[in-house]
Design a protein around this nucleic acid. Structure first.
Length: 410
RNA sequence: CGGGGUGUGGCCCAGUUGGUAAGGCGUCUGGUUUGGGACCAGAAGAUCGUGGGUUCAAGUCCCGCCACCCCGACCA
């Protein structure tokens, strides 16, 4: 991508109606744009990041046999009445269509996925199955805040699994847990993310959240350093010790919930009368699990966690581009490098803008935060190459022209 | 939903005891620059959130409403 053609440009001023760091810097760098409280447009750079997060999620869901679907976002009132949530789910955005027909914008999809799965999963031979989607969710939050961390419209990966018995759900649940940790590891959040015990409702003692440590987080978790898990507030009120090792010496920390998984049991299969035929020809209730993860919230979290005074420091796995190539009055030479990188499928943002001061290009590169910065100038060409610098470091070096592709093509 | 704060060109903002809107960024034109948001000259761009009221006169004072931010409550 040539920066001269990019739809957005960076801005110097901090937007006055944002105080959260992730929103300020994502807006300044041109990743997102604010529409209203908790409502954002995703712009070319931001969408690239979001898509990369989504693709990591897809990749890991595939390893646990999750099949991607896309369910309706406009959901009829009746399904919510079936589970008694039409009047009890405060955050539902409700709307009225023709003939006074009422709908809710999808806030979660148990009410849609259960009738859907009922149409296809009828026999023990067809279980277990697991389907997921990545979709915009709508929740009428009483108070949207903190940029991408709590929006009224946000992206969610929600997966639902269907099992013939509890043991099968239990086993799958553990597989999901492991897949989630692989996702956080690929996002660079492994060390900061804790499996966190929270209350489980009627069907299991606990559910689990995945909490990433950051001062920007709105949750308080209590970490057990012995077994590297945490408990949330409601659990510590009940138990006041680590549910794994009974350790009472827990450390409080602020965190943001980047995922949660839940054993639903038969709550929804009962409500929608979803049963399967077992090998004795007997109808049995289907056991369900659900597994949420918020890609847009994760994008905000990554920004909160990886940054410095100058801008974002994207992990390579989700950076909008791997390389930010800056031409300082050497567009011809830089363009050759640009074309060569493109030819080798190396993602590059090429700052080919003319009449732009070098300082501005450096400032933009730091703000946007691609992992590597390559500078082409008369000076570097004289030295036989281009300057290379990793985003978080101050160390610069010259890399010969004929080694660039080799350096980045793995 | 309670409490607090803020609304002035696309963005950030100044605006005194009420007297007809200043500056910076960005944009456009010309020139000078060219390794950390460079400089000079000129230009375009504003129903001052919105509706009402007071006044000869309202960005400024009064009342209602709306939007956004923060704290709290809430967050299957």
């Amino acid at each position: 991508m040539k920066q001269s053609q990019l739809f957005t440009k960076t801005i110097k001023e901090i937007p006055k109606d944002e105080t959260s760091f992730n929103a300020q810097i994502l807006i300044r760098a041109g990743f997102v744009d604010k529409v209203g409280a908790g409502i954002y447009n995703f712009l070319p750079l931001g969408l690239r990041v979001l898509n990369k997060i989504n693709n990591i999620v897809r990749d890991e869901m595939a390893t646990i046999s999750g099949q991607e679907v896309l369910m309706a976002a406009l959901t009829p009132k009746e399904v919510w009445q079936t589970t008694d949530r039409w009047d009890n789910f405060d955050a539902l955005f409700k709307l009225v269509g023709n003939d006074d027909k009422e709908y809710a914008l999808g806030a979660t999809h148990e009410e849609i996925v259960t009738p859907l799965a009922k149409k296809f999963l009828c026999s023990y031979k067809e279980l277990p199955k697991s389907i997921y989607q990545i979709q915009v969710k709508f929740r009428n939050e009483p108070r949207a805040k903190a940029g991408l961390l709590r929006g009224r419209e946000f992206f969610m990966k929600d997966m639902y699994s269907f099992h013939a018995n509890q043991a099968d759900l239990d086993q799958y649940y553990e597989e999901v847990k492991a897949a989630y940790f692989r996702i956080y590891a690929r996002l660079g959040l492994e060390d900061l993310t804790y499996l966190t015990y929270s209350s489980g409702g009627a069907f299991s003692q606990f559910s689990h959240e995945f909490q990433t440590l950051t001062e920007a987080g709105e949750d308080h978790i209590y970490i057990c350093s012995d077994c590297r898990v945490a408990v949330n507030r409601e659990i510590i009120k009940e138990h006041n010790f680590c549910p794994v090792c009974q350790n009472k010496n827990l450390t409080e920390a602020k965190a943001i919930e980047v995922g949660n998984i839940f054993k639903l049991g038969t709550k929804f299969s009962k409500a929608f009368d979803m049963k399967y035929m077992d090998d004795n020809g007997q109808a049995q209730e289907v056991i369900m699990g659900c597994y949420g993860l918020g890609p847009s919230r994760i994008m905000g979290t990554v920004v909160e966690v990886f940054n410095d005074q100058r801008g974002i420091i994207w992990p390579e796995s989700i950076a909008p581009f791997k390389i930010h190539l800056l031409s300082l009055k050497e567009n011809e030479a830089a363009n050759e490098i640009y074309l060569e990188l493109i030819k080798n499928n190396i993602e590059v943002l090429f700052d080919d803008r003319e009449e732009i001061a070098a300082g501005e290009k450096f400032a933009d590169a730091d703000l946007i935060g691609c992992p590597y910065r390559l500078v082409v100038s008369a000076k570097t060409l004289q030295a036989g190459g281009v300057e290379i610098k990793a985003r978080p470091s101050d160390q610069m070096g010259i890399i010969p022209l004929n080694q660039i592709i080799n350096k980045f093509s793995h």
